[in-house]
Amino acid sequence: MSQTTPDASRSPADEPARLAAFEARLAAGDSIEPKDWMPERYRRQLIRMMSQHAHSEIVGMLPEGNWITRAPNLRRKMGLLAKVQDEAGHGLYIYCGTETLGVDRRELIRQLLDGSAKYSSIFNYPTLTWADIGAIGWLVDGAAIVNQTMLAKASYGPYARAMVRICKEENFHKRQGYEILATLMRGTAAQRAMAQDAVDRWWWPSLMMFGPHDEQSPNSAELLRWGVKQRGNDELRQRFVDQTVPQAIAIGITLPDPDLAYDEVAGHWTFGEIDWAEFWTVVKGQGPCNRERLGARRKADADGAWVRAAAEAHARKQRERARSQAA
């Protein structure tokens, strides 16, 4: 594909010079575009990071999609359906961005379905009540926004552009979730209990979304050097906590962390230690819903094979007819 053929006009002996030029471009804040020369390692890291992000959007449709048919009124029904639809769109933008690096979407999807690709572990938790939908919008989308706002300045052009589009659309996702919880907290005793229970279950996994401490994160340093990430995991996690705690207080929700306390001097909310055993268990595939999530995606893909094939068969027939008419 002409869009992704890398610029091959110089010899391998230029490698160190090209690498230096590349890093100078990054230092200057330049955008790297698909046809620019890039180190193979940069290309691989981007493919890994972007495809993982896209997979997360797609798998993320499932825990929320679980409640579309049970949404409690028409406005919530439409709001949730629109949100999940946006997630499909986000996955699509990022897959297409990844394809500019010379990999086919089909191959990326194959990696997701055969279990070799990762996706955000947060989506391996079940949505047990309607309040979970509120918690996800507020906390999970909230955490994602902290991450995505940073990624809108990523050094790779197609990724940054996809992220700008996504950030614009995310505005209503978090607000919708927060509004759902705020409404529950103003409701019946059963609704308030439902909201509190959901937050009790989703708070810690949301903090885990920012990944391990920077010292334990193998990819962080490289991604930071290459301008794909601009901030470390811990810094982003702190930013999320600082913005979220006042929001919880405002609607009367208690966050399930007895160590949560405001540090006047530092100007931050200090918080307890994450249960890293749980984090690694879920990341390694033994979370509550890992099998269900992948199972659902495999089924959709398998059930849809004949549909995709039919469309291609039709397109082929049309081309053949056009050719024989022209002849």
């Binding site: 449709m61 499932l62 579309i68 359906l81 999940v84 499909a88 059930d303 549909v307």
Partner: peptide
């Protein structure tokens, strides 16, 4: 809406 997340291809979802 029952198809959401289970369609034959992302574009159709």
């Amino acid at each position: 809406s029952e198809w959401c997340g289970h369609g034959p291809i992302l574009e159709e979802d």
